[in-house]
Amino acid sequence: MTDALPQQPVGGALERSADGRRWSLTLERELAHPVEDVWAALTEAERVARWAPFLPGRDLDAPGEVALPVPGEKGPGPRGEVTTLDPPRLLALTWDQDGLRFALTPTDTGTRLELTHTFAEQEEPSSFAAGWHLCLAALAGTLYGLQVPRVVGESARAHGWEQLRDQYEDLFTAG
């Protein structure tokens, strides 16, 4: 049996690049865990596989190429590259054509995690936000030691992905 995902508020920011060709989605989470624990969950392949939308082919603790296939998809899947590391504060990588940046800041109660996903598809922001919302909830659950379900593909739909997508769509069109 698995534990339920921790509930998190809907919130985030969406910005268009100066040249208008790329978008950046930013989600922030307050995690009641030390930076070092969150860093391990972001970089150790076995731990990343519990919450992320991809299964890294190696730990993400060194620069260079890495396979980042999506569970359930056929073929080798997207490639990635760890481009920036500043342990335990900053991890940046590419995932196919997209950029992912995880910034960690210590707080009095744990860690502030800021995820920025940079992408080109204009129609995807609320879909990406809903997916990352669920993934970050799974990350929080794993940090608490819960046996959380994978929330990729159809499993994401079973955990409220469509409702979250609609809520993020409302948030991004209101702003």
Rank of each mutant, 00 (worst) to 15 (best):
T94R: 07
G77Q: 06
V70G: 05
A174P: 05
D86A: 12
T173Q: 12
P56M: 00
A67C: 08
F128Q: 11
A41K: 03
M1H: 15
L93F: 05
G72W: 01
L60W: 00
L104K: 04
A129D: 09
W51H: 03
A67Q: 13
R22A: 15
E169D: 15
P6T: 10
T173R: 14
L42V: 04
P56D: 01
R150T: 12
T105I: 06
G11A: 12
D59K: 04
L115N: 04
V35R: 10
P87S: 02
D61I: 09
Q167L: 11
V66C: 08
L5I: 07
E123A: 15
D37S: 15
A18F: 05
V82F: 01
R50K: 13
V82Q: 00
G80S: 03
K74M: 11
T116A: 07
E28A: 11
T109M: 01
A156M: 01
P78W: 09
T142M: 10
T173P: 02
A32L: 11
A40I: 05
A92Y: 01
A18E: 14
E65R: 15
D166V: 09
P9G: 09
W132R: 06
T83M: 02
A41P: 03
A156R: 01
G141R: 00
G12N: 06
P53A: 10
H117W: 10
L136E: 09
L104T: 02
A103R: 09
A18R: 15
R101L: 11
D37G: 09
R47C: 00
D170Q: 14
V48T: 03
L14N: 09
T118A: 10
L164T: 06
D59V: 05
W39H: 03
G11C: 03
D108G: 12
L25C: 05
G160K: 03
E46N: 10
R58G: 12
G11P: 03
A13P: 07
H117G: 07
V151D: 00
S155F: 02
W161V: 06
T173I: 11
G110N: 04
D37L: 13
F172H: 02
L146Q: 09
A18P: 13
G20T: 08
L25A: 08
L42E: 02
Q163H: 13
T84I: 11
W23L: 15
G75K: 07
A137D: 11
T109H: 10
D108A: 14
H133F: 02
G175Y: 03
A140M: 01
Q7F: 09
V48A: 02
G64T: 08
L164K: 04
V151Y: 01
D98A: 13
R101I: 08
R47K: 14
R29A: 06
A32H: 13
R101Y: 02
T2H: 14
G11Q: 10
A92G: 05
Q122C: 09
A67M: 07
D3F: 03
G11L: 05
W23K: 07
L171R: 09
R165P: 05
A130I: 05
H133K: 06
P78Q: 11
